[in-house]
Amino acid sequence: MSRFLLSAPRSILWSSVLIAVGLALELVSLFFANPVSFTTFLVASACMAAGVLVFVLAVLRRPTPTGADS
């Protein structure tokens, strides 16, 4: 598995930024009950989904470097 991760050099940075932003927005939205917090959560979900996609697609699409696991 590590060779797949190593083959996606930028993905960890970008996906962790997107997911962190999404989680922070979700955390704030939890403490309110109004349409603004609901919309904030929708934005947060989009950020998190994008973060997961960035990571997964990068891992799946990049060519595997030879001997990265060794």
């Binding site: 996906s15 997911i19 939890l30 609901f38 959560f41 998190m48 989904a49 997961v52 990571f55």
Partner: peptide, 22 residues
């Protein structure tokens, strides 16, 4: 970076759907 964010989207969706009934 994969499993927990998906779980948090699910948990948040449940929470906000319940809250939006209030």
């Amino acid at each position: 970076l994969v499993a927990l964010p998906i779980v948090m989207i699910y948990v948040g969706t449940n929470h906000h759907l319940a809250t939006s009934k209030s």
